[in-house]
Every structure is written in structure tokens, then in C-alpha cells.
Write a protein that binds this DNA or RNA. Sequence first.
DNA 1: TTCCGCTCAGAAAACGTTATCTGACAGCCT
DNA 2: AGGCTGTCAGATAACGTTTTCTGAGCGGAA
Lengths: 353, 353
Amino acid sequence: MGRNVSGAAKRATIIDVARQARVSISTVSRVLNERPVADQELVVRVRAAADELGYRPNAVARDFRRGRTTSIGVVVPDLANPFFTHVLKGLANDVRAGEHRLLVVDSGEDPEEEIQLVEQLAERCDGMVLCSPRMSRAHLQAVAGLDIPVICTNRSVAGLPLGTIGVDSAVGMAQAVTHLYELGHRHVGYLAGPQSSWSDARRREGLTSAAAACGMEVSVTVAGSASDAGFTRLPDLLREGVTGVLAFNDLVAVGALARLRELEVAVPGDLSVVGFDDIPVAAFLGPPLTTVSVPKEDLGRAAWAMLRQQMQDGEVASEQWLPSALVVRQSTAPHPKRLQSGAGRRDGRRAAR
Amino acid sequence: MGRNVSGAAKRATIIDVARQARVSISTVSRVLNERPVADQELVVRVRAAADELGYRPNAVARDFRRGRTTSIGVVVPDLANPFFTHVLKGLANDVRAGEHRLLVVDSGEDPEEEIQLVEQLAERCDGMVLCSPRMSRAHLQAVAGLDIPVICTNRSVAGLPLGTIGVDSAVGMAQAVTHLYELGHRHVGYLAGPQSSWSDARRREGLTSAAAACGMEVSVTVAGSASDAGFTRLPDLLREGVTGVLAFNDLVAVGALARLRELEVAVPGDLSVVGFDDIPVAAFLGPPLTTVSVPKEDLGRAAWAMLRQQMQDGEVASEQWLPSALVVRQSTAPHPKRLQSGAGRRDGRRAAR
DNA sequence: TTCCGCTCAGAAAACGTTATCTGACAGCCT
DNA sequence: AGGCTGTCAGATAACGTTTTCTGAGCGGAA
């Protein structure tokens, strides 16, 4: 069945089915694509023949002929980063509902690799979503010239005909800063993200302007996007005498927390820590992390909605910004020197008392 | 350039290039695929024409004609699970080196969805890697009938012509059990994984047989693969009176740790916890998690090596098992009732004394 | 009865490549 | 000088579909 004597499986084509069913290939195509066929007898014969031969249509041939692939491509800087995987979840859930499938590729945070992948993938997709692209503006422009709609997340592309959807990190950052200010902190540190990250620029911007507004001092050290960076760079800020630390993202905050534990600095007793993204483990850390929550799934959903619209209506490049909001958990508390009372609901295990 | 008056970009084909360069399409194809062309003049003309028209070959047409896609598909139950993303990293790094690209899809832990995705993706790939497939054996058999090589990770497929590569979790589990036994624990609990998980079955098996070997009591409760499951189910084990807990994976352990913190049970002072997988945050937790380390990147690399071999040599279904090993950190300590001395290097903050 | 129009399945064209085949021309040997 | 061999680029045949075109058959209206 479907295999010839040599053992090398020779795959049945639509022609074989047609021959077997004693109809034309047009009829086979019609039956298999559920287009109206008058004679039910033919339908039955075709179905039987296809079954018998184990026929499965050649998807590449079909895509080729149809000129579309029913695939949506997603390019992500780093699949190991929980932030992206949650954006993906949002995307996947909604895409799955339709007739499209999602193809994901990881660019490894490499801008050159990224543009290459995008160009290759674009050839095989009906539309694409670029998550926080690291590539240069020039490359982005090249992407805009591709002949499929592309949505860009977390990156402003002023002037380029690309749908954009991102997180307004300024609000969340401002909330975080105000939160620390109200707790009495007057000098905070920022564990910055990768230099190529547009989001980091926005977060840093939001942080400095909010801090300036309430007259707080800010120290910055460049970390990265992974935990070990937070672990390594945290002491830089401690040396500066900060009493609160804001991290580029939760992963970095996790590293910072670990270092603080090692240094026996109590959180939040001696130092407050704020993350960003609100990844799942954030709520399970010790202490549960105060962080800026970002609607990651919504981001994915919105990207798909926008992409679908562009695929239908032709070219409609729009822009959309989703809110971020502070989630207060237990890694932040009053500045010990100013408001000594009630120093934390559950202070670190060796609060200096 | 490449756009007609209507504004709808009409894409240049190889025929347009040939016409513009005043050569045959065969020559264009030869030049662009870097096959030998004697007359350098022609090469120059073709290159120029292609440039001018902004020609990019239609990848789908090429794949169709060539009968292969230079794409490798990977199917993963849940991209949000760090374990899989690390397997992916290993795969991606090595695949990237060659001329293939990696296409990843997430099945959402749904066996039915999974088989569908696999069948669709298989049509568009030269080979596939199935990570910890949740599908039934019957479906796996269908997969084995596909006409591209497929590698299966973390799932034994006895009798099926599928390359298999997995983690020998029995050793690691045995080490973990012995470790707890030597610390004086005599009754441990297991926070089990998803029922459809073959890995969970293996881990549970390894756990119970090792425990039986040294005469330990084991209580089991079914959790799942995410942190909230660990958080929710942990009390079941506490009620059974266990003094050590082994989790299906680190994510579940994270949830368990959080619940213990909330219940003010000191880890490792009052209770020891062991995870599985050794995901990055494991080392950064409070306390740093004792866990069974699995060579995730190696798993990906090995899968690619095996897949590549199968793609070259034709059908060679083999089997390979990678070791797992206990990594002792600070979430395990002597059973308090038996060996009171040195009750933990850094005990939980409110040890009941 | 004749012709028009409609329905429906088969025939054939197209999609954009790559791979095979063909034929022209040049060089060499006899 | 004639013929044989080899080289190289152009012509053309696939690849497996979907879609458009064609023509046969039939029913109804003039």
C-alpha cells in the first residue's frame, strides 16, 4: 500500500488517485478540497481511491500553486526568555483557532542572523511577527519592502510601513519609581538590559524621567537580559549606595535576588527590588517579586489581530500600545532609615535589627 | 524598480531576469546557484539584472522543484517550559551551522493537536524532532510512516522505526533518593508530572525502585508540569508526613518551595526538596535548589546529529540515552529528627525550635 | 424541431523553479 | 580536410497542484 517493491516508498500523487478512481485529476482536486461535485458516486470513488493509496497531498506543491502557505512566521530573539514564550502563547492560541499555523524561529539575539532568518522565513509565510527585533533600522526597512505583511512588537518604526504593537513601559516604570519614592527611597539603581534592546531604552527613559520628576537619584549599570547578569552586576549598585533596585526584567531581578541572598542583604528589609515583565516564577520567588506586569499574552493576541487585518485589508500600518502596571508583592518595603515602623510584612531572614 | 504602476508590487521572476540579461533562464539559474558558467560576461549580466529587478527567488517554487525544503521541524509540548527551550538551544546552535533552518511549533500539551501539527509540518520539512511527544502510540506509528526521518526525544518507541534519544532519569532519581536516604530521610513524597508524560512514568519508576531498594516509604500526588501545580499539591504530601519531597521538575519544585515559604516550613531545615532538570533559575532560588541535572543542550545536539545521519544514510533507527546526575545545592539537609547536628548550612528563617 | 444556455466533469494551462536534453561550435586527431 | 569528441548555453521537460478553459449532454423555449 503506497510502497513499491524496492522498499523505497514512492509517494502517491493526485494523478495516481485519479487513475485509480477513473476520474480526472480536476475531480480529485475538487473532491479533496470539498468543492461541489454533483455526482456523489464520483465523490465516493475518489475518497476510496485516496484512502487506498494512502494519498496525502503535497503541501509544498499546493502552497506553490496557490501562492500562499497558510503559515505565519514569528521571529524571537531568545526562546529561552519567558517573556517571549508568553507572547507566543497568546499568538498561538488565537492563530490556532483559524486555519493558519505558527512557525517560530529563534535568532539567538544576533542582529545579522535575525535579518537573514527573516528573509528566509518570509518566503515561506503569509505574514510575520517580529518580536522585539534587534536588527538595525536599515534592515527593518528592508523587511518593510518584503511582500508580506509584517508586525513589529516592542520597537517603534517611525515612518516605516510596518504594523507596530508594543508595551508602554513608561507608565509601569513611573509607577514603580513612585512606589519606591513613597516608601521613602531616594536613591535607586537600574540593572540595564542589552544595548541593542529598544525596550531597554524605553524603560531606562521612563525610569530616569520619573525619578527626575520626584527628585530621586539614579545609578545605572549595564547588565543584560539573563539572571547571571543581574547576579554579577548587582554589587555595582550596592557600592553606589542605592536602597532600591529596578531590573530590566524579572530574570535579571532573579539574579540580583540571589546575589543579595549570598551577600546577606535582606530583601526587602535592607533593599527593595523591582522586576519587569511579571514572568510566572516572579510570584513564586522568595520573596515574591514586586514587578511591572506586562500583558504578554495580550501582546501576542493583538499582534495576530493586527496581522490578520493587514492580510485582509491590504496595507494598513497602524500602531498600538498596551499598558504596563506595577504589581506590588513582597520584595519592596519602606526604606529602613526613614520609616522604621512595620519593616516589611515578612522581612528577609536576617533583617538588621 | 520591481513595482508596476498600480502600486501592487509584481514580483520579478527568473524569466524577467533572463529577459533583462538577454540570456536563458537556465543560465540565470546556473549563475544564481553558483554552478560553473564559462562566460564571465554572462555572470556579470545576470547579477546586474537580478540586482536591478530586485529579484529574490521564490523559495516555495524552489523547494517544490527540488523536492526538499532545507527546513527542520521541531515539535514541543510547551514552549513556556524552560526544559524544552534549552533542548531547542542545543538543536538550534548546531543546525544553524549547516544550511538548514529550524521551525518550531508548540502543541500546547494537546495530543490531538500534536499529531495534526506533526503531519502538517512534516509536509514542509526534510526532517523532524519530536520533543517528549504526548501523542498515543498509534499516532506515533503513523508518524513513523511519514516519508521523512523523525527523531523522538524522551520517549521510547520500542519496535517503531524512529530514532530515539532520551534521558536516563533512573540514575539521577536513584542518586537523589540515595542522597535523601543518607541524610536520614525515610519517607519522601513525589509531586508527579502530567499523566501523558512518558518521562514522568520513568522518573516515578526510578524513584519507587530506588526507594524500595533502601527501604524508604514513598507518597505520591499528581501535580503537573507547572509551578502552580506544585504550589497546590504540596500539602497532600505534608499530610502524609514526608520529610523530603521530589518534584517531577524544577518548575513544580518552585511552586512547592513557594508554598512551603507560605506555610513557614523551613527548607531545608524542616523539609528537603529536590527538583529535576536543573533549569537556570534553580541555582538562583532561595534556597538554591538541589536537583537532577539533565544535559538539555546535549539532548538537542544529539538529536540533530542522529537526524542528520538518518537524512544522509537513509533509514537508520537507533537509540541513545544520556545520563542525568544529581546536583546538590542547598534545598536538602539532614532529616531534623535523626541528625540534629548542623541542621542546614543556612536554614529557613523560622526553623521550629 | 431547432437552437440557446446551463451544468458539470474532463482537458489543459499555469505557477517558478531546477534538471535534463539538444544542438552549435571549437579543437583535435587521423 | 573530414570527422569525432567535448564544452557550453539555450530549449524544454518535468515537479504536483489548482484554476481556467472546453465541450458534451440535456432541458426548455421559440
